[in-house]
């Protein structure tokens, strides 16, 4: 189980590196899709089907939209500036970051240990108090419904912003087109 998890995580990391390094925009978008789908399997293995479902469907629609957008953009990217100093500095920074992360992870409790008493209270009481058998929904739409309200506001704002930026250039002139 751990083995599968580590393998999948490594796969996701490889996918994200590939997405960064791909020359063609379309290939990068497909690599992003690989990252998202691998991540959803990780969530599923960790016992979070709600997140896994959301991850899959969001990934599908995002990759569709990105492919649609990427297929129109001319496939040319600025050549990456590389040099020995740059590469060495990057590698050094990456090593330092990995060392710090490893040191930080040593201090964390072991993976999967139960440390939080409030979480246990929610698991025991949620169904009885809210009537929702799915504890995730019980928390999202009852105990922490304010968070969900804020989330909905964020999405509404994002959509309004996107529609304002991407609106048709001359709507009044070509009403017949709509």
């Amino acid at each position: 189980m751990d083995f599968v998890l580590y393998g999948l995580t490594g796969f996701v990391i490889l996918g994200s590196i590939a997405a960064l390094e791909m020359k063609s925009l379309l290939s990068a978008v497909i690599a992003v899709g690989v990252v998202g789908l691998g991540l959803s399997i990780v969530f599923l293995l960790l016992g979070a089907p709600d997140i896994a479902i959301t991850q899959v469907v969001v990934e599908v629609i995002v990759v569709t939209v990105l492919i649609r957008a990427a297929s129109r953009v001319p496939a040319e990217t600025a050549p990456l500036r590389t040099g020995r100093t740059r590469t060495l500095a990057g590698a050094g920074l990456a090593l330092v970051a990995v060392g710090l992360l490893v040191a930080a992870f040593q201090t964390l409790p072991a993976f999967g240990t139960q440390r939080f008493a409030p979480a246990l209270w929610y698991l025991e009481q949620a169904t009885e108090l809210t009537g929702a058998a799915n504890v995730v929904t019980a928390i999202l739409l009852d105990f922490r419904a304010y968070d969900t309200l804020g989330e909905a506001t964020v999405i509404l704002t994002a959509v309004v912003g996107a529609l304002a930026v991407l609106r048709r250039p001359s709507r009044r002139k070509e009403k017949s087109h709509v």
Partner: peptide, 26 residues
Amino acid sequence: LNLAILLKVGAGLFAGFSAIALFEQT
């Protein structure tokens, strides 16, 4: 509440997609 979110998220994501798709088209 779930149905309200369904309406919101479904229409919102689709509006984003159609804005991008139709923007490119026109």
